[in-house]
C-alpha cells in the first residue's frame, strides 16, 4: 500500500467526518502512531475530544503546511499565513492549543503557544487578568509584597522606554 492517495477519515467529537490525505493527517504524531500498523486504504480515526469547528481549523493548518513543504513555499509566506491563521478569538485559540497538544502536532502547538505568549508579553498584571478573565486570588498583602519584589523589572522597562 503506497502512502500516496491513501485517505484517512477523521471523525470529530460531534460525529462529523473529515477526509484527509495520509500525509496531511500524519502531521499529527498521534495519528501517525495510530496508523502505523494499519494498512487499509481508508482508515477511520475518531478524535473524541475535538469538535468539528476546531478539527476543521487544525486540518486547514496541516493541509497548508503539507502543501507548503511540498512546493517549497518561502519562509516569509509561511510566516504571514501563520499569522493570519492565528487571528482568531481567544476561545478558538485555546481550543486549537488543546487540540494540537492532544493530536501532538508540534509546530501548531508551538505556534499557538507563541501567539498566547505574544498576547501576554509587555502587558501589566491587570491587563492580563482583564484579557483572559482571570480573577486575582491573592490577598492584598501578598499583592503588595509581589509588586515590591518585582519592582526592579518595571523600573527597568520604564527606563528603557525613557531611553527610547
Amino acid at each position: 500500500m503506497t502512502e500516496k492517495g491513501r485517505i484517512v477519515k477523521m471523525v470529530s467529537q460531534d460525529q462529523e467526518e473529515f477526509e484527509v490525505e495520509y500525509g496531511v493527517a500524519t502531521m499529527s504524531t498521534l495519528i501517525a502512531n495510530v496508523l502505523q500498523d494499519v494498512s487499509e486504504e481508508t482508515t477511520t480515526v475518531p478524535i473524541p475530544n475535538v469538535n468539528a469547528q476546531v478539527l476543521a481549523k487544525v486540518i486547514e493548518y496541516c493541509r497548508y503546511h503539507y502543501e507548503a513543504k511540498r512546493i517549497d513555499q518561502s519562509e516569509e509566506d509561511i510566516e504571514r499565513w501563520n499569522k493570519d491563521f492565528m487571528k482568531v478569538d481567544n476561545k478558538t485559540l485555546f481550543n486549537i492549543l488543546i487540540a494540537a497538544s492532544f493530536l501532538d502536532i508540534a509546530d501548531l502547538l508551538d505556534l499557538g503557544c507563541k501567539t498566547v505568549a505574544g498576547m501576554i508579553k509587555d502587558k501589566s498584571v491587570e491587563q492580563i487578568r482583564e484579557l483572559f478573565c482571570i480573577e486575582g486570588d491573592f490577598t492584598e498583602e501578598q499583592e503588595a509584597k509581589m509588586r515590591e519584589e518585582n519592582n526592579w523589572g518595571s523600573e527597568m522597562s520604564q527606563e528603557n522606554n525613557a531611553a527610547q
Binding site: Q13, N51, A52, Q53, V54, N90, F94, I134
Partner: peptide, 15 residues
Amino acid sequence: EVQRTAEVPSIDDLS
C-alpha cells in the same frame, strides 16, 4: 458537549 467545549475554554482550561 460541543457547546460546552465551544463556550468554556479560557486560559484556565489549558493544562
